[in-house]
Design a protein around this nucleic acid. Sequence first.
DNA 1: GGTATATTTAGAGAGTTGTCTAAATACCTA
DNA 2: TAGGTATTTAGACAACTCTCTAAATATACC
Lengths: 94, 94
Amino acid sequence: MANEKVFKALADPTRRKILRLLSSGELTAGQLTSHFDISAPSMSHHFNILKNADLVFVRREGQQLYYSLNTTVFQDLMTVLLDIFSQPENGEKK
Amino acid sequence: MANEKVFKALADPTRRKILRLLSSGELTAGQLTSHFDISAPSMSHHFNILKNADLVFVRREGQQLYYSLNTTVFQDLMTVLLDIFSQPENGEKK
DNA sequence: GGTATATTTAGAGAGTTGTCTAAATACCTA
DNA sequence: TAGGTATTTAGACAACTCTCTAAATATACC
């Protein structure tokens, strides 16, 4: 569900950039971290928030953790936004 | 533009509910406030954040301030979200 | 002007968030 | 088992956010 956690997760620019990076395909925690001037623990904190919002998947391969986008939550998010921003048609009850 | 301020504004459930209420048409500050168990000054604070994010319009009529939805920002928001969540097609560069 | 209503501004306080360093855990290779 | 790399967990701290009460501003009406 596109709930509280999803909106909170999207409220931070670092996390939105992480998602944009992942839109091209999965990346390891280290690869993602190299795109930022932020410590690894701070990045890990962001990964956690994204994971808890179900915006990303993780899988381990050896020492590395691969993060990838969970696009199904995006569908729900769009539904919520459409509900918020849709204007009622003439005569339509909302 | 669907920027930082828009995402921050959407991160709060009270503000999302305000937007949902406005999706049926404009309402005064007082009418909006009556839907919440929150003081008028706190509501005013939320109105301000929504205004600064260009998510709502305001107009005064006598003693009342009427708030209404600015749906144009919604377009931009959708564009940003599509950019974040779109997966590249086969062979497509992203 | 004086009073009432609608709403905002000012300022304070508790809770949340993003960042850091230090330490721990997980896995690999020898 | 030991050492190295990848990543997370723990704990602390400054900054930001949401809420409140009190006071100010804006408008209407008598």
